[in-house]
Each structure stands twice: as structure tokens, then as C-alpha cells.
Design a protein around this nucleic acid. Structure first.
Lengths: 156, 156
DNA sequence: TAATTATTTATAATAATTCTAAATAAAGAA
DNA sequence: TTCTTTATTTAGAATTATTATAAATAATTA
């Protein structure tokens, strides 16, 4: 579990100013259970800062990603990039029916970093581990028939 | 290593017609060492089929993804979605400097499916396992200074 | 305080992807 | 084969997430 403070402190240590907008974005990212998109963050921060601009959201996200404290999950069926403030190794599980993404601790994923580093010689900066499928609830509601239609998956 | 035949047979078994355009796209996907984008596939297939449309590329990719024989890696620093015809468990490694993506076999990743299925109850349909960092060559050429600037990463 | 610099905002621009409708090709029946 | 029906492709328009730009604002320093 990451705290809002870690995010804001990271910005500060990178020489950036701690503005109220950035604090709000960091707080939302750290405390959100979902894996928000820029648009979702925008509409939530807008409640506190009605004049905030989408550009500020994108700028701050980009900075946090580049500093390595936020990961990018990519699209998850809605044409929007999802972000994850939890950068410790874990699996993200997206349901293609209800479009929710949940976190899953994983014994194997915790070892991946070292395995990859040792085998490849890469200097790792981030990861995007997203599995997709049908969650138990959506399976019970009736799984999609094959061949799958676009509206049924949407993972891109 | 997947073969072009597996892809075309999958289309056939799903009740779709085997057109020359689809065969060409399947062949390219299966034989490509890179992890191509729709635009890249388009320009390569265009050599054989000068009249092919981008819409055909997108339609075929969408179908193959929905049938589970092609995975979506998402953006890799170039604002374009990358595809991977290798759906057996492996790690995709993207270099944020040279923007190349390579495959990496992984002992841990091969076990992830079962671990996730057992722990979550999800019915898994696909995965997106992309790690990003600096490849050995780009490390030697000089790693980016912190804080990272946008043009240096580009993973989104 | 004034001067400087970083940040935010609003809006325009970009471009990947999707949609639409007409044209074309394939499959099956007679 | 030819006719009929259906699937597919094409070209181009439409959509929309994201990025870029420039003016306005806020923070910082002296």
C-alpha cells in the first residue's frame, strides 16, 4: 500500500513544486481502489478544484510515471489508459465483462524482477502485468459465447 | 513459436472466410520477430496487396484477439498498440530508449496462469506482461538522468 | 516589494482508432 | 455456368484520447 506522502515527496525530491492540484492527484492515486484513468481522476479532483484542467492531470501522471512511482496498465476495454500507484510486484486482473481491474498478490510475480534482470541484463524501470478474463460474478451471469464479439471483450 | 496456419485455421473454425488479406496478415503476425502495430502491419501487407485498407488490419486483429490467438501489449512508447501472436506465457521486454520489444522465456511466468486461476477464480482469456527499462546496449550508451523527461521514457 | 520561474488553465491541434456505406468477392443453389 | 445471398473489403468521414501552445496565475527568491 503506497501513501499519498510517498508520491508528493517523490515530486519534491525531483525538484518540483508541491501544488494543491498535485497533492490532490497524488492523494487520489494512492487511496483509490480502482485503477483510474486520466478522465476519472479529472472528474474526481474537479470536485475539490473546479477549475482544474485535464492537462494538469496528464502532466502530473506523466511525471509520476517517469519517476517510477506510478505504473501504466494501458487500455482495459474502454480506450483509456489506466494507471496504478502500486508499483510493488503484483498482478492486475481485468474482467472483460464488468471492466473492473483488481490487484492480486502473486508469489511468482514477486520473483519476476530478479529473474528478468538476471536473464536479460535490462535495467528495469516499470512493469505492466495485466491478465484479463471473466471474474467469478460475470462467469455466473453467463459467459460470452464464441466467437467473442468486440463488445464482449474490448481489451486492446 | 506459432505458425501462420494456426491463426488462419482459428479464423476458419470460427466460421470466417479465409481471404488472401487475412492470410497475409496472419502470416506476417506469426513470422514477425518484432511486435508489430496496426500501422506496421499495414505498410508491410500493402506491398503484396496495394489496395488493402487499414480497416481490414484493425478488423482482423480484433478478431484474432477476441479468439485468443493474439495478445495485446498496449502502447510501448509510440502511442500505438502493439500486438503479439505468441500467446504462450512469456515476458515482453521493452526498451524505453530504442523502443524495441523482445520476448523472454520465464520460469515464473509459466506458472502464473495456474496461480492466478486458483487464487482468483477468474476464467483467464489473455495476458499482457510487459516490463520496461533499458536494454544493455542503451545502458552502455548512457542511461537517462533523473528526473526522467518524457522523451526519454515514453512508456504509456 | 519587484523580478523570475514554474505551473495551471483553456483551447487548439494531432493522430490512432472506429464507424459507415458503397463496392467487391465468395459461397451455395439451381 | 448464372443468380442470389451473404461476408468482406475499401475509402473516407467521424470520433476521441492525448498532446501541444500560449496566456494567465501562482510560487519563489532577492
Amino acid at each position: 500500500m503506497i501513501t499519498p506522502q510517498v508520491l508528493t515527496m517523490t515530486l519534491q525530491q525531483a525538484g518540483m513544486r508541491i501544488t494543491p492540484q498535485r497533492v490532490a492527484i497524488c492523494k487520489l492515486l494512492a487511496e483509490s481502489e480502482e485503477h483510474p484513468t486520466a478522465a476519472r481522476i479529472f472528474e474526481q479532483v474537479k470536485v475539490l478544484f473546479p477549475s482544474i484542467s485535464l492537462a494538469t492531470i496528464y502532466n502530473t501522471l506523466e511525471t509520476l510515471v517517469n519517476l517510477g512511482v506510478v505504473n501504466v496498465l494501458g487500455h482495459a476495454g474502454d480506450d483509456q489508459v489506466h494507471y496504478d500507484a502500486e508499483v510493488d510486484p503484483h498482478v492486475n486482473l481485468a474482467c472483460i465483462a464488468c471492466h473492473r481491474i483488481v490487484d492480486l498478490p502473486s508469489e511468482h510475480v514477486t520473483h519476476l524482477d530478479h529473474e528478468i534482470t538476471a536473464a536479460s541484463g535490462y535495467k528495469l524501470l516499470g512493469a505492466r502485468v495485466l491478465y484479463y478474463g471473466l471474474c467469478p460474478a460475470c462467469q455466473a451471469a453467463g459467459s460470452p459465447s464464441h466467437p467473442l464479439r468486440k463488445s464482449q471483450t474490448g481489451i486492446q
